[in-house]
Nucleic acid binder design. Structure first.
Length: 426
RNA sequence: GGAGAGAUGGCUGAGUGGCCGAUAGCGCCGGCUUGCUAAGCCGGUGUACUCCUCACGGGGUACCGAGGGUUCGAAUCCCUCUCUCUCCGCCA
């Protein structure tokens, strides 16, 4: 959420930002509602003041006079009540409008309509040329009895799956490797709730707007399954005023992630590229409101993810996501796309977002700066490793002619020291 | 799931209808004092919104878990909800 004061002072910047993101947003209406609300609030405050001072006089008055004075005061309550209700409704209207104002994208965000206009900023490694016809992860997984999408669909519907045998272990290996790497870098590991209140989804910027993408329980509980550990981790310090000395907060969390993938029928239907549930290790940083530092953090969390991919010998590229492909909350986003032979293309495996104070303001997450002033924090996050997409990249890129799969060195300790898995196929 | 107790400022903890945005202690900040790793004394110390002011600063309103209600007036009384604790039951 943007600061209403910022919108008042710089409506043109906010409008230009929304335009760059291709998000419709009526800023002029917000300014009108804001003005109306403030006028009502001033009136209500004045009426309350009168009412309070009158009440004090009644308290001080002789007992005999009180009933008469109270009766007089009762008459005056009506106007106050009417104006209070009006001010409250107006404030609510303003708040709901503000929740939908997109964050202003950074200068460095390229212009563009959709992901086809994202700008590649880095490429690492070279897609391997196979001297045999490589299998895609499904063919390989089914042949090795590692993946069962038929059973997944039977048990849980389409876009669900079972990982079996070594693939189940391999998923754990990748996750644990990613987690351990981040802990070595000083990130504090967290185990988090994945079923959260709706207000947390609002606080992190997923609602309003993203309701269709989240699984929700029925009205008995009205809870939401998170699509990423970013949600509970970022919200950990909701409503707190943090100590400057404790910042930055760096967290890493492994969690299950749940996504409805509404509106994706017919897209990525084969295989495990787009699924409803997966495992992910996520990195989150909460720090002071300093744009330069946030940019440094942004580059650092991208570098952390690159380190994972490089050490696992996977070719990838980094793209600077264009305005039209940015979500409402981000000020800038870098996606990392890893080479996937079955797609003959790079596929998104990581997403590094910088939010400025957008999330922290919604979550009311603040800190006291060196001068004692209370300020809203900045937040960032990035994937470290997301399970099925990483597994796709790993087994497709590292497959051999005979159907066995090479295990990169960092994962071997987590796989009983083996450098290969799978049996030779005919 | 049943019964009971509770939720107050950074922390501890008073406060059962007006003198309470809130006693006190701790912590923190500033100053004074004493030559001795520390103590004492004095003062200050919440957040948000808003109005006035170029500004320094000042005024107003709201907030005692959340939301409603009663009342001229609510931290205090009533209702609902959330959370915490204790006991019982059930259970991974």
């Amino acid at each position: 959420m943007l600061d209403i004061k910022f919108i008042r002072a710089h409506p043109d910047i906010v409008k230009a930002g929304a335009k760059k993101k291709r998000i419709a947003c009526d800023i002029d209406k917000i300014l009108v509602v804001d003005k109306e609300w403030r006028e009502l609030q001033v009136e209500v405050d004045g009426l309350r003041q009168e009412q309070k001072s009158a009440s004090k006089l009644i308290g001080a008055a002789a007992a005999a006079d009180r009933p008469r004075l109270a009766e007089e005061q009762k008459q005056k309550k009506e106007l106050l009540k009417v104006r209070e209700v009006a001010a409250e409704l107006k404030q609510k209207e303003l708040h709901e409008l503000l929740l939908r104002v997109p964050n202003v994208p950074a200068e460095a965000v390229p212009e563009g309509r959709d992901d086809s206009e994202n700008v590649e900023v880095k490429r690492f490694g070279t897609p391997k040329k196979f001297d045999f016809e490589p299998r895609d992860h499904i063919a390989l997984g089914e042949a090795q009895n590692w993946i069962d999408v038929i059973a997944g669909a039977r048990i849980a519907g389409s876009r669900n799956y079972f990982l079996k045998g070594d693939m189940s272990l391999y998923e754990g290996a990748v996750m644990r490797y990613a987690l351990d790497l981040m802990v070595k870098k000083g990130f504090v590991p967290l185990s988090v709730p994945t079923l959260v209140r709706s207000e947390i989804m609002v606080g992190t910027g997923y609602f309003p707007g993203g309701e269709e993408q989240a699984y929700r329980t029925d009205s008995r509980d009205d809870m939401c399954l998170v699509g990423t550990a970013e949600v509970p981790v970022t919200a950990l310090h909701q409503d707190e005023i943090l100590n400057l000395a404790d910042l930055p907060k760096k967290y890493v969390a492994l969690s299950s992630c749940y996504r409805r993938e509404a509106g994706t029928y017919g897209k990525d239907t084969r295989g495990l590229y787009r699924v409803h549930q997966f495992q992910k290790v996520e990195q989150v940083i909460v720090d002071v409101a300093d744009a330069e530092r946030s940019i440094e953090h942004h580059h650092a969390i991208v570098a952390n993810a690159e380190e994972v991919l490089q050490s696992l010998e996977l070719p990838y590229r980094v793209v600077n996501v264009c305005g039209g492909d940015l979500g409402q909350p981000q000020i800038q986003k870098f996606d990392i796309e890893t080479w996937m032979p079955s797609r003959q293309n790079y596929g998104e495996t990581h997403s590094a977002s910088r939010f400025h104070e957008f999330q922290a303001r919604r979550l009311n997450m603040r800190y006291r700066d060196a001068s004692g002033e209370v300020r809203v924090c900045h937040t960032l996050n990035n994937t470290v490793a997301a399970s099925v997409r990483m597994l796709i990249a790993l087994i497709e890129n590292h497959q051999r002619r005979d159907g066995t799969v090479y295990i990169p060195a960092p994962l071997r300790p987590y796989m009983g020291g083996r450098d290969s898995m799978g049996r030779a196929l005919a």
